[in-house]
């Protein structure tokens, strides 16, 4: 696939993703009955400019890894969010990345294995979280890398839940990051549903993946596969695993996160 053709495919993919996002924004507006939309069409966001009362600070500590036949990464960090209004939050995220390259690479926890090089860098990001509905977030983050990468980045994350008043709500998430140094744009997407809920656990299952394009990437690269998630309510601790196949051959990834909240 030529670069030009690849970019065309990427543009189409971005267009489709944008259309899906618009649809998703519109659908939860009914499904989640946000902020008075159902009762009063004239004031869909009452108190838009009022400070959140009570305010809330959320902290998410996360870690995870991605392993494939061609490269692997491990990432860990935390994200803090301070509510400003009911519909707007101030977000800061710090992530440390370790990247292992090399054909035949399969284990990010074994740097002594068949690995040709290891790169370390940190990513500092800050921005805003727009709460379109109580369960629909749109993050816009700008950032800068330090270490073996010093790229500037811009990131847009969108997540929502549909049909929350049912036994099997559907979660839709997408995250797009553009790296201004190597001109690569990467988008990850995930759709999953709740397969079970108990007093302590929430189980989800679905599928997802990522596409890469631009810069050094020839055409469009990516991978995808099924994923599973579990959330333990008493500890507010969650874990997601995904495996599949794509440009980097077989891959697997895991993400673990813990949430904290403080009311002010």
């Amino acid at each position: 696939m030529s670069t030009e053709k690849g970019m065309k495919v990427l543009r189409n993919a971005v267009g489709v993703a944008a259309a899906i996002m618009m649809l998703m924004i519109a659908m939860p507006a009914r499904a989640q009955a946000p902020y008075g939309v159902m009762s009063s069409m004239s004031t869909p966001y009452p108190g838009f400019f009022s400070l959140a009362d009570p305010g809330r600070f959320d902290l998410i500590v996360f870690g995870g890894g991605f392993g494939s036949n061609k490269y692997g990464t491990a990432q860990e960090g935390f994200q803090g969010e301070q509510t400003l209004t009911r519909y707007l939050g101030l977000v800061g995220r710090i992530t440390g990345y370790e990247l292992w390259e090399g054909e035949g690479f399969a284990n990010p926890l074994d740097p002594g294995g068949p690995v040709s090089s290891r790169l370390n860098f940190g990513r500092f990001q800050g921005g805003l979280d727009f709460l379109i509905t109580p369960l629909t977030h749109l993050y816009l983050l700008g950032g800068k890398d330090v270490g073996n990468s010093d790229a500037a980045t811009i990131e847009g994350d969108f997540s929502t839940w549909l049909f929350v008043h049912s036994y099997h709500p559907i979660s839709f998430m997408t995250s797009t990051v553009h790296n201004f140094q190597n001109s690569v744009t990467s988008s990850s997407i995930d759709i999953r549903t709740v397969v079970g809920s108990t007093e302590n656990f929430l189980f989800t299952a679905g599928g997802g993946g990522a596409i890469y394009g631009g810069g050094f990437v020839s055409g469009v690269a990516g991978q995808g596969g099924p994923d599973l998630g579990v959330y333990y309510r008493p500890w507010r601790l969650g874990a997601d695993v995904q495996g599949g196949y794509g440009s980097a051959d077989q891959y697997g990834q895991i993400a673990i996160y813990k949430q904290f909240s403080w009311l002010e």
Binding site: T73, Q79, E103, S171, Y212, G238
Partner: peptide, 20 residues
């Protein structure tokens, strides 16, 4: 509170064995 990008870990960097 619902999984969000970033909540489940920041996405892996897009770097499939690149010259850069």
């Amino acid at each position: 509170s619902g999984a969000q990008p970033g909540a489940g870990g920041a996405p892996p960097p897009a770097c499939p064995v690149c010259p850069a």
